[in-house]
Computed example of a mutant assay.
Amino acid sequence: MASSPTPRFVVQTVDARAERRRRVVVAAGLAGCLVAGLLIGWLAGHAGAVPGAVGDHGAARQLAADNEVLRQQVANLTRDNQVGAVAANELKHTLAEREEQLNGLRNDLGFYSRLVGGGDQRQELTVQDVRVSPIAGSHAWNLTVTLTQNARRGADTKGRITLAVEGLRGDKLAVLDAKDLGGTVQAGGLDFSFRYFQQLHTTLALPADFRPTRLRIGVDADGSDAATRTVAWADASQTSGDNHVQQ
């Protein structure tokens, strides 16, 4: 019995549903691969960027620390400068006080030197000191004039001093004499009589619109020619230097 030949073509029935499922599976697989690739790329990019971000953050912290150190240094320097300024002002004040004390000692030394001057040489009558001080609540001033002479002279010196004040009245120069000064100034002046030294006291009343600049003192001692000395008002309001009147 002869065998039947193998057929060259086989006819199969196509299942449409199975074909669609296969296509869906393939498409899903491709989509998954694409998503996985994108995810891997994104992670790689961020993994490379993380070290740089960490480095920037560290640099910012270092800059902040350096800035704080500089601020503290500036604050310390500022305090040191303030302390130095206070110390300098205190030193200037102390030096001014010492200078004032030295000036007072020099005046005292001059006073006693003339008072007990050595030798037989005749010493001059001296306007040793002139001081003015304001009287509160008025235009009046207290005036003190100190006169000295050598104690070795052994005789009293008598005479009279006259006073005048030079200054500005408005925008013009003016001179006030005894009759214009008021206060306790006598028209003829202030009499003196002493062997060693004498202080003369009086009060000057100045007009409200008058600004004094100099005090003029005339000295007329018995047996000698009259002499005039001037003292700046600013100096007299502190302590004037020696003003000599030769007899």
Rank of each mutant, 00 (worst) to 15 (best):
S3Y: 08
S3R: 13
S3E: 12
S4E: 10
P7S: 12
R8L: 13
V10E: 10
Q12W: 08
V14G: 07
A16L: 06
R17W: 05
R20Q: 12
R20H: 08
V24S: 13
V25Q: 09
A27P: 08
G32F: 10
C33W: 14
L34E: 02
L34V: 13
L38D: 14
I40G: 09
I40K: 04
H46Y: 06
H46M: 09
G48P: 00
P51N: 02
G55W: 04
G55T: 07
A59V: 03
Q62D: 12
L63N: 08
N67G: 08
V69T: 14
L70Y: 11
L70V: 14
L70H: 13
Q73G: 12
V74C: 02
V74T: 06
L77M: 08
T78A: 15
T78W: 02
T78K: 07
N81V: 12
G84I: 05
A87G: 03
N89W: 12
E90T: 10
L91I: 08
K92N: 12
L95D: 09
E100R: 13
Q101A: 14
L102H: 08
G104F: 05
R106W: 11
D108K: 11
Y112M: 08
L115W: 11
V116A: 13
R122T: 15
V127M: 01
V127G: 01
D129Q: 12
R131K: 09
V132E: 00
V132F: 00
S133H: 01
I135H: 05
T144E: 00
V145E: 00
T148F: 02
N150L: 05
A151Q: 06
R152D: 05
A155I: 13
T157L: 12
G159C: 04
I161A: 06
I161E: 04
L163W: 05
E166W: 12
G167T: 09
R169Y: 02
G170Q: 05
L173S: 15
A174R: 10
V175P: 10
L176M: 03
G183V: 02
T184G: 09
V185P: 11
Q186N: 11
R195I: 08
Y196V: 10
F197S: 15
Q198R: 03
Q198V: 04
Q199C: 03
H201D: 15
T202N: 13
T203S: 04
A208W: 02
D209S: 11
T213P: 00
R214G: 02
R214A: 09
R214F: 03
R214T: 11
L215Q: 03
L215S: 04
R216P: 01
I217D: 01
G218Q: 05
D220S: 03
A221E: 04
D222V: 09
T228Y: 04
A232K: 07
G241V: 07
N243A: 15
Q246A: 08
